[in-house]
């Protein structure tokens, strides 16, 4: 009996720690479960959007980490209240229009103004970046609309295909290209959207931002440089992936490239990108260190 009592009091204490936060989370779970369930069967089901649920989870973890229950004010100032009202009203319009009009970007995207309107006014004296970054990061889980993705995807695919052909040709492989179709020996390969798309860049950009945020550095220049360098890194990682798939097809046949090894190439993309990212960071640090030595 006593054990039960102490266990339940322990549980209560656990919830006391970030109580307001959990209430808000409960509200979000109720509101967004149907929206997310819908995304899971469509936009997020695409291979190039696999990062989105992870971004969502990470954003909430970051928010949880930075939330301080002791800093929840008992009274809210007029400015904070007005800000909250405007944000929540905007979120409500997006939520209704998105859900009724069947536009998942809007329905899901409303989570950002909703959080801005409910979390920011409830934290006093917390550095604003600590609250804004998780919300900004959350943007990367919103599916990009087609009218932004479609016109940019085609040239990116062409570039990846062209780079792949140049590299493999220089290495002595019998390879030729027509648009996004690659002809390697007797095989015909197509660079698909998922292999070179803007969405991959988007995913990697999220990875870069998270990296910058988690491994904080006082140098703002370093942070900006890393986020910018994600663009060429993404391109390189994509080329590596396509080359890997070409080689798998060339040596092990079509079936191998379409099966397990295709998944493997996807993992390779991220390992490659992360390695390049860390490499870029280390070289930036090295250059910075040398410059400080020189200036002394």
């Amino acid at each position: 009996m006593t054990a039960l009592m102490s266990a339940s009091s322990g549980l209560l204490q656990l919830f006391n720690i970030k109580r307001t936060f959990f209430v808000l989370m409960l509200l979000l779970v109720c509101l967004y479960t149907p929206v997310i369930a819908d995304l899971m069967t469509h936009e997020w089901a695409k291979p190039e959007s696999g990062h989105a649920p992870i971004v969502l989870a990470l954003s909430f973890w970051l928010m949880y980490r930075n939330w301080q229950e002791s800093l929840v004010p008992t009274d809210v100032t007029a400015t904070r209240l007005a800000f909250s009202l405007v944000m929540q009203f905007m979120a409500a319009i997006l939520y209704i229009v998105g859900n009724v009009g069947d536009i998942s970007q809007l329905a899901y995207g409303s989570i950002i103004p909703l959080l801005l309107g409910s979390i920011v006014p409830l934290q006093r004296g917390v550095p604003i970046g600590k609250l804004i970054f998780p919300l900004f990061f959350l943007l990367f889980s919103v599916p990009l609309p087609g009218f932004i993705v479609d016109p940019l995807t085609q040239p990116m695919k062409q570039l990846v295909a062209a780079l792949t052909v140049n590299i493999l040709h220089a290495a002595g492989f019998p390879i030729a290209r027509s648009g996004v179709m690659l002809y390697l020996g007797q095989y015909e390969l197509q660079v698909a959207d998922a292999c070179a798309g803007l969405r991959t860049l988007f995913t990697l950009e999220a990875l870069g931002l998270l990296y910058v945020n988690l491994f904080e550095s006082s140098s703002r220049l370093r942070n900006i440089l890393i986020v910018v360098m994600v663009v060429p890194i993404s391109l390189l990682a994509n080329v590596t992936r396509v080359i890997a798939l070409c080689l798998i097809t060339y040596y092990f046949g079509d079936a191998a490239a379409q099966g397990f090894l295709h998944q493997f190439a996807g993992v390779l993309l991220f390992v490659c990108a992360l390695t390049l990212l860390i490499g870029a960071d280390l070289s930036l640090r090295f250059v910075a260190a040398r410059r400080t030595v020189h200036s002394k």
Binding site: M5, S8, S9, L12, Q13, N16, R19, T20, V23, L24, L27, C30, L31, V72, P73, T74, V76, L81, S84, Q88, A92, Y95, I96, N99, V100, L114, G117, S118, P121, L122
Partner: peptide, 30 residues
Amino acid sequence: MQVPVVSAKGRFNRLVVWTISFWIVVAAVC
């Protein structure tokens, strides 16, 4: 024996209560 009692009143911020009621209405409209 003391069981920590959580008073529902003071702790919850008014803004939180308003937010929740507002969203219940929004969800219903939706």
